[in-house]
C-alpha cells in the first residue's frame, strides 16, 4: 500500500512539466527514503534523477518498495487537472495495475480522483558516482534559461567555460557567434539573485543546447540553478524542489574526436 499526500501539489505539476519532454516513460520508485525517479532520454545522452524525500510529504505511507511505471505525458495530463494550490495524494495498492491521483482544493470543497493505468517499463538503473567538480556555478535559474534560449537562436551547441573572470557561455552558428559572461556577484538585494562561482580549476565543456533548453523547463521550481562541471564528465544541472528534494539533469558532453 502506497499513500503519499503532498500539500504543495503544485510542485508535482511543475516536476512533471520539467520531465515530460525529456523522458517518455519512467519508473517512479517509492521507498522509505522517498519518491524518486531515474531515467534517460531516448538517445541516452541525458539522464534525470528526481528525489522527493519522504519528510517533505504531509503523509507518507510506503509499506514496501514499489516501482510505478508511468507514461510521463499521461501523468502530466492528469496532474494538469489539479489546481495549483490543490493537495495531491498519490495512491496505489501493492500489486496494482493503476495509480490514483486525488486532488483536494485548499478549502476541501472539491475532491477529484483520477486513475491512471500503470505500465511495465524495462529500465536500467545507472550508478552515479560522487564526483569532485572543477567548477560549480550557482546562478538565477531564469537567467540561465534566458541564456540557453538566446544562444539556441544562433547555434546548436554551447561551450561553458569557467575561469577567474567568471562563467562564459559561447555559441557559433551560420549567422555568427555569441559570448555571454556572468561574473561572480553576491552584492545583490536578494540571495536568489546572486551568481556564485566556485572554481578549483578552469574548465571548458561543450554541450548540445537542445538538452540544456529542455532542462530549463524546471525553472519554475527554483529561483536558483546549480551547474557543476568537470572535464570530460557529464554536467549536472540541479534545481531544488522546495525543501524536499531536487531534480538533477546530467548531460554528456560533446567531445572532440
Amino acid at each position: 500500500m502506497l499513500e503519499l499526500r503532498l500539500v504543495q501539489g503544485g510542485l508535482l505539476k511543475k516536476v512533471l512539466d520539467s520531465l515530460k519532454d525529456l523522458v517518455n516513460d519512467a519508473n517512479f520508485d517509492c521507498s522509505a527514503t522517498g519518491f524518486s525517479l531515474q531515467a534517460m532520454d531516448s538517445s541516452h545522452v541525458a539522464l534525470v534523477a528526481l528525489l522527493l524525500r519522504s519528510e517533505g510529504f504531509e503523509h507518507y505511507r510506503c509499506d514496501r518498495n514499489l516501482s510505478l511505471g508511468m507514461n510521463l505525458s499521461n501523468m502530466a495530463k492528469m496532474l494538469k487537472c489539479a489546481g495549483n494550490d490543490d493537495i495531491v495524494t498519490i495512491k496505489a495498492d501493492d500489486a496494482a495495475d493503476s495509480v490514483t491521483f486525488m486532488f483536494e482544493s485548499p478549502n476541501q470543497d472539491k475532491i477529484a480522483d483520477f486513475d491512471m493505468k500503470l505500465m511495465d517499463i524495462d529500465s536500467e538503473h545507472l550508478g552515479i558516482p560522487e564526483a569532485e567538480f572543477q567548477a560549480i556555478v550557482r546562478m538565477p535559474s531564469a537567467e540561465f534559461a534566458r541564456i540557453c534560449k538566446d544562444l539556441s537562436t544562433i547555434g546548436d551547441t554551447v561551450v561553458i567555460s569557467v575561469t577567474k573572470e567568471g562563467v562564459k557561455f559561447s555559441t557559433r552558428g551560420d549567422i555568427g557567434t555569441a559570448n555571454i559572461v556572468c561574473r561572480h556577484n553576491t552584492s545583490v538585494d536578494k540571495p536568489e539573485e546572486a551568481t556564485i562561482i566556485e572554481m578549483e580549476e578552469t574548465v571548458s565543456l561543450t554541450f548540445a543546447l537542445r538538452y540544456m533548453n529542455s532542462f530549463t523547463k524546471a525553472t519554475p521550481l527554483a529561483n536558483q540553478v546549480t551547474i557543476s562541471l568537470s572535464s570530460d564528465l557529464p554536467v549536472v544541472v540541479e534545481y531544488k524542489v522546495a525543501e524536499m528534494g531536487h531534480i538533477r539533469f546530467y548531460l554528456a558532453p560533446k567531445i572532440e574526436e
Binding site: 534517460m40 538517445s43 541516452h44 545522452v45 541525458a46 539522464l47 536500467e124 538503473h125 545507472l126 550508478g127 552515479i128 558516482p129 551547441t157 561543450t206 548540445a208 564528465l233 557529464p234 546530467y250 548531460l251 554528456a252 558532453p253 560533446k254 567531445i255 572532440e256 574526436e257
Partner: peptide, 14 residues
C-alpha cells in the same frame, strides 16, 4: 568535429 557522447559511457549499470 565534436562527437556527442552518451551518458552510459560515463555511468555504469548498478
Amino acid at each position: 568535429v565534436n562527437q556527442q557522447r552518451q551518458i552510459t559511457s560515463f555511468f555504469s549499470k548498478s
